[in-house]
């Protein structure tokens, strides 16, 4: 049951975008259209889950035995960059269709701070391998959820009668603020266990 709460917590309660305020750049940048938002979400889900697992292995079996905790951020960045590159190569070869869908979003993920943030959080929360994977998967689901919801709202905002001063980015930021407030309503939902 605790695994379920790990995912629930990552998706809703500690939503990576609205509560932890991570990964805002793709959140604001790739949320203009629903279809691109879905693509970005799928690519992030794929990479983030892998990155969470791989960084746990690196941290647990490489850094911890040599007491090199201070190299954590650096080595995680290297691992994530390599994983993104590797994923792109493999997908390009094995599934051209998926490669076309994910397109440029895949390399963009390298600079998504959520992908670095989640592995670091995994370490500070003391999660094991399975929990790390679940937390990474849950967080990226949360990221996708946030992105899709936000993109849907922004598509509607395009047709709305917004005061001139608020058109474009300002109203988007205000919307994001409201959504963040709404997600605060989930706080405490993971405290039952």
């Amino acid at each position: 049951m605790s695994y379920f709460f790990v995912i629930l917590s990552a998706v809703l309660v500690n939503n990576v975008v609205f509560v932890r305020i991570l990964g805002l750049c793709p959140f604001m940048g790739v949320s203009k259209k629903l279809s691109t938002a879905v693509g970005m979400g799928a690519a992030t889900t794929f990479v983030l889950t892998l990155a969470a697992g791989a960084s746990y292995l690196v941290d647990h079996y490489l850094l911890a035995p040599f007491e090199l905790d201070y190299l954590r951020t650096l080595s995680f960045i290297v691992v994530i960059a390599a994983i993104v590159q590797l994923t792109e190569l493999v997908i390009h070869k094995t599934s051209p269709l998926l490669h076309q869908v994910l397109g440029i979003y895949l390399p963009l993920i390298t600079t998504n701070c959520a992908v670095l943030g989640i592995p670091l959080l995994n370490v500070s929360l003391g999660y094991g391998l399975l929990e790390s994977l679940l937390f990474g998967f849950g967080s990226s689901l949360g990221f996708t959820l946030a992105l899709v919801l936000f993109a849907s709202i922004r598509e509607r905002l395009d047709g709305a009668d917004v005061p001139i001063a608020f058109r474009g980015m300002p109203i988007a930021l205000i919307t994001a603020g409201f959504m963040s407030l709404a997600f605060m309503g989930f706080a405490g939902l993971d405290r039952f266990n």
């Binding site: 040599f66 090199l68 290297v78």
Partner: peptide
């Protein structure tokens, strides 16, 4: 030295 070796190995 450990740090250098580990990072080099990782890279």
């Amino acid at each position: 030295l450990n740090a250098i070796i580990v990072m080099t190995a990782l890279a």
